[in-house]
Design a protein around this nucleic acid. Structure first.
Length: 104
DNA sequence: GCTCTGACGATTT
DNA sequence: GAAATCGCCAGAG
């Protein structure tokens, strides 16, 4: 896989339990602040999701949009909400509270 | 190598 | 303030 994608996975994997990050934040961490869309595409191709592999997975469900809106997900937005809710992240009509955003 | 598209974001109407 | 528009970078065709 390309280096960009590898970096994205690495950064997303560092997101702590019960926290979320925006696509823009991930893009900024990997060195391309404006590549939020590319980040989404990279995560979309990933199959190591939490609802498929319990042991080795990338918490892509902890990545939401910059305004807190829950974006798309391989298993559907419903699954994404379930996972976040299980981790203690409150969801308000497909939206997460801004206080759950993780900043390194 | 050119063009299109997209798990997005900020601006403008 | 909600909806439409443009811009953005990285991959795929």
């Amino acid at each position: 896989m390309s280096e960009f994608t590898e970096r994205v996975y690495n950064c997303v994997s560092k997101v702590p339990h019960g926290k979320v990050v925006s696509y823009a934040q991930v893009a900024e961490m990997v060195g391309s602040p404006s590549a939020a869309r590319a980040v989404g595409v990279a995560l979309r191709k990933n199959t190591r999701t939490a609802y498929l592999d319990k042991d080795d997975f990338i918490p892509c469900h902890r990545v939401v949009r910059a305004d807190g809106f829950v974006g798309e997900y391989n298993g559907g937005r419903q699954t994404k909400r379930e996972l976040l809710c299980s981790e203690g992240v409150a969801i308000n009509d497909n939206k997460v509270d801004l206080s759950y955003f993780w900043t390194e």
